[in-house]
Design a protein around this nucleic acid. Structure first.
Length: 203
DNA sequence: GAATAGATTGTCT
DNA sequence: GACAATCTATTCT
């Protein structure tokens, strides 16, 4: 397997980290077996200014605490009472920046992923969304603040690919911040949750 | 294929 | 007590 990415990768500016992690390999070595996939979609969140970030306005709570810590740790949170979301912490200590990993293309442990996903996890429907990805990779509350530079959950090196920029998903409440092109995805990859540019509204 | 409702709980007002 | 960086099943067309 490719070498694990070190702290210096996560210590870059958050927009750079979000872009650079497209094509990289996400690995989780779990008791059920090892799962891995190429990251094909990610978004940058840059508090305290960014109105779409949980750390907007400098909100520092038990939930957001990990984002205020060192780069290279995991920020995991629950959303809609059902799904987990997985982020890479970026920025220096006290800078609450993070990169949401939204989708991946399975490389290893696909059988384990499908088992975790259950009946709904057919076809592409395994890792093509932030909640699905967490379920397939077995990422949960126990992984909160875990160190990606040392633990069983980490990113590994991979060759760069063609990257597209588009607006972030599901943050319409954030005003002008919602329009920033802070989502990065791999061109033409079927596992991208919402294809950029396919957001045409026709009547 | 598109639109809609319901799920279900941690977090913050 | 409202709502969220979503997903799934169902009900249309």
């Amino acid at each position: 397997m490719a070498p694990r990415l070190s702290r210096s990768f996560y210590s870059q500016p958050v927009l750079r980290v979000a872009e650079a992690c497209i094509g990289k390999i996400l690995v989780h070595d779990t008791p059920e077996g090892l799962v891995a996939g190429r990251i094909v979609e990610a978004e940058a969140y840059r508090g305290p200014q960014d109105a779409a970030a949980h750390s907007r306005g400098g909100r520092r709570t038990p939930r957001t605490e990990a984002m205020f810590g060192e780069a290279g740790r995991a920020y995991v949170f629950m959303i809609y009472g059902i799904h987990y979301h997985f982020n890479l912490v970026a920025g220096g200590v006290g800078e609450p920046h993070a990169v949401l990993i939204r989708a991946a293309e399975p490389l290893a442990g696909l059988d384990i992923m499908r088992r975790r996903r259950g009946p709904a996890g057919r076809g592409l429907n395994v890792t093509n969304g932030p909640g699905k990805l967490c379920q397939a990779f077995g990422i949960e509350a126990k992984d909160y603040a875990s160190d990606l530079c040392a633990g069983p959950l980490y990113l590994a090196e991979a060759a760069p690919t063609e990257i597209l920029r588009s607006p972030r998903i599901g943050v319409d409440y954030a005003g002008s911040w919602a329009r920033k092109l802070w989502r990065f995805s791999e061109a033409e990859n079927p596992y991208v949750s919402v294809p950029p540019r396919a957001t045409l509204r026709r009547k």
